[in-house]
Nucleic acid binder design. Structure first.
Length: 103
DNA sequence: CAGGGGGCTAAGG
DNA sequence: GCCTTAGCCCCCT
């Protein structure tokens, strides 16, 4: 029960929850901001498990390429894109050119 | 213990 | 800009 990965998970979610509206962050920065440099992949694994009705701003997380890590023809892609636009974040040619949010 | 995969990344071709 | 290789971490068969 010593938590190991459970603890990491919480740290990721915690940092994720404190990302201000209109800001975006990459998986790498998310992990690093959570105090887990190199856990970029793990961060993605955590977000993947989040419930659909989560309150966390999972949509503010994108990959290092400044793009959404979902197939363009997929639902979550449009969902994330829509949410970000609602927050004032606009993508051009399928990618964001905004600086990633870091602590 | 081996093998494969996931909302990843950086470096090369 | 696209694809491949290699490296990272954790989880499930």
């Amino acid at each position: 029960m010593s938590s190991s990965s459970e603890q990491y998970k919480q740290q990721i979610l915690q940092f994720l929850a404190q990302i201000p509206k209109g800001k975006i962050c990459t998986y790498g920065d998310l992990a690093k901001g959570a105090g887990l440099p190199g856990y970029s992949r793990f961060a993605g694994a955590v977000l993947r498990k989040l419930p659909k009705d989560t309150k966390l701003p999972w949509h503010r997380i994108i990959n290092a390429q400044g793009k959404i890590s979902f197939p363009v023809d997929s639902e979550p892609y449009l969902e994330q894109k829509k949410r970000l636009q609602e927050e004032g974040v606009v993508m051009i040619k399928g990618k964001f050119h905004l600086p990633t949010y870091r602590l």
